[in-house]
């Protein structure tokens, strides 16, 4: 087991964002977590990354308790690709990518990774001297993924990579996620786009108001009536979903 989370509780500014969440990720998997806005998806990734501090529960990585210092988490091989395309807008595309490799030493191997990133995203190579802030949304998403890859992580945490992207770009991004995974990287993917996420995931969890309410293989969850109703929009939005939504907004 690469990553194991047991009974995780997180609260901040009065919000009980995670309420006893447990999950695990095995080496080589793409594990997806689907859930509505405010279900606690980003909080989960931020607790793994050491950005928010859980008040109860344990996160262990390769059998050992994971450090709660954000910069040490990266050194351990866990990298988060944050949502909302959080590039360093005041730096160039290439400087952004190189920052991904901040903890790596060895110029030659970093340079090789840079070439790999450009191969994966030729658009970034065309724009390498531009400020990241001048890129389109899709290009910024490519940049944050490329930046994450530059760290050569063992486990990549992807936060809503499809958010706000045109369908054609969403397909591209998911294809790239699969490629990265085939090359040996374990991925924990958090998504609102349940259809896509369940289709690429080896296993999946459904997160609702801070708790896991379902888990299983991606295929099984795609067929699960509760999941279909609430997240896949197979039927009309039900009352339950609306309640869940308004509950999260109330928080």
């Amino acid at each position: 087991m690469l990553l194991e989370i047991r009974d995780l509780h997180v609260a901040y500014s009065g919000i009980h964002a995670l309420q006893g969440l447990s999950l695990h990720v095995d080496e080589g998997e793409i594990v997806t977590i689907i859930g509505a806005n405010g279900a606690g998806k980003s909080t989960l990734l931020n607790s793994i990354s050491g950005i928010v501090r859980p008040y109860q529960g344990e996160i262990s990585y390769r059998g050992k308790t994971l450090t709660d210092k954000a910069h040490r988490v990266v050194a351990q091989g866990i990298v988060q690709v944050p949502e909302g395309r959080q590039v360093f807008a005041n730096l160039t595309v290439e400087e952004n990518l190189l920052l991904g490799a901040y903890l790596r030493t060895g110029k030659a191997s970093v340079q090789a990774s840079l070439e790999e990133a450009y191969e994966l995203f030729p658009r970034l190579k065309e724009r390498k001297t531009q400020y990241a802030g001048s890129l389109s949304g899709g290009e910024q998403q490519m940049l944050v993924i490329g930046r994450g890859l530059m760290a050569q992580p063992k486990l990549m945490l992807l936060d809503e990579p499809s958010l706000g992207l045109a369908p054609i770009l969403v397909n591209l991004i998911f294809k790239i996620i699969q490629t990265i995974n085939k090359n040996g990287m374990t991925i924990l993917l958090v998504e609102q786009n349940a259809h896509k996420a369940l289709a690429v995931g080896t296993r999946a969890y459904v997160l609702e108001t801070g708790k896991i309410i379902r888990e299983g293989s991606g295929e099984a969850l795609l067929k699960d009536p509760v999941v279909q109703e609430a997240y896949l929009g197979t039927k009309r939005e039900t009352k339950k979903r609306k309640e869940a939504d308004s509950a999260t907004w109330a928080l």
Binding site: H71, V74, L103, A151
Partner: peptide
Amino acid sequence: SYNMRVSRLMGIN
């Protein structure tokens, strides 16, 4: 200076 939180995700202290 641009974003301290995201810089931590790069492994920057």
